[in-house]
Write a protein that binds this DNA or RNA. Sequence first.
DNA 1: CGTTGTGAACTCATTCACAGCT
DNA 2: AGCTGTGAATGAGTTCACAACG
Lengths: 217, 217
Amino acid sequence: MKDDDPKLSPAAGRRLSQYLRVLRGDRGAGTVSSESLAKSVGVSAAQVRRDLASLGHLGQRGVGYDVTLLADAIRHTLGIHREWRAVLIGVGNLARALLRYRGFAEQGFHIVGLFDADPAKIGTSLERLSIEPMENLVKRVQDLQAELAILTIPSDAAAAIAETLATAGIRGILNFAPTLIRTPATTTIPIVSVDLAIQIEQLAFQVQARSGARVVE
Amino acid sequence: MKDDDPKLSPAAGRRLSQYLRVLRGDRGAGTVSSESLAKSVGVSAAQVRRDLASLGHLGQRGVGYDVTLLADAIRHTLGIHREWRAVLIGVGNLARALLRYRGFAEQGFHIVGLFDADPAKIGTSLERLSIEPMENLVKRVQDLQAELAILTIPSDAAAAIAETLATAGIRGILNFAPTLIRTPATTTIPIVSVDLAIQIEQLAFQVQARSGARVVE
DNA sequence: CGTTGTGAACTCATTCACAGCT
DNA sequence: AGCTGTGAATGAGTTCACAACG
């Protein structure tokens, strides 16, 4: 087992997620063309073909791509063909929103533990999960067999906690704290940051630039 | 007034937001170097210089960039040197989280109206704002002088509402619905979509690819 | 000196255009 | 005929390396 994927840029990864979303709607239609996928997502047909070709030969010339087959292939290369267990750190409104968000469970992402620093919250329950103190974090991560962590703490403790999580065996972090987490080179694990302020700043930027063109990202 | 910016890629826009975030922390230090900014954000120093040079000549050779001057320049090109008024559509947990999120107000983004389709919620208040029925949307957007809309509705009504918003004079949409909004060519306004499921999928992807390298984006 | 600004080289990503299957 | 896969051409974005300047 050496270099299984040829190559796959991060941008290409995002597009795969988008194709997958479209395919979910097309369940039933036996087959799709690069052209139709392209229109739905807003990229060129050539782009779609290039992306999909990199997953192996799963299109049929003159016909198109088998919907369920393609969806499976994408799920496989994205690594979401299996279940992922995640802990949620910092139980505020955002955490509540994520807990109730159907999209996660549907794609096989399961939140299996809640942690918070606020003593008042410890012991209370949410969606069948009891909120635990931060001290338990390292030990419980192992018990729960969680591989991912979602950080929804308001601010600056993020970096320290990220460090702790890495040593606890967490393999990836989805970070909502508006802090740039500087991973300290040693225990470097993937971090995907969603900074809500940056998103709305980007919107303002696009509006101001009055580029009539639709930009979706 | 013709082509004011020379050019500014969307990726460059995101980086500007990140530099700005770092600068906020460095308030006090009179000056920063491209090198230090680069390290904080995780890009190359040459990249930083290239980005900042496009905003005009505001670095001093041998010295660096004046922190407050630079921050102002970035805010200006991003279009966040002024206030922006936004309405929030769909008042669930996510909306509550956004309302309480300090990052918005700090950057001059003010939520000035709440709307929901659920009759049970109409009339109740949240952070001094009373929740209004969707029927009022078009009329109220004008009164409130809102330019942006934040969509936090759970699902598929998104596309229709986006259409309505565009005709109501909204100039940009921050969309949290996990739907690809297909703007109908006519009334095309900028849409920035934040799809939480896609974010966690990307995380799983990176973890699976076990590319030890930190990817922050 | 130290640090910016920038031409030139280079790498990565996207589009073109068409041969090759079905 | 229709639609994919892909080499070649193009374009965008990034790094190199160094002259220019306080």
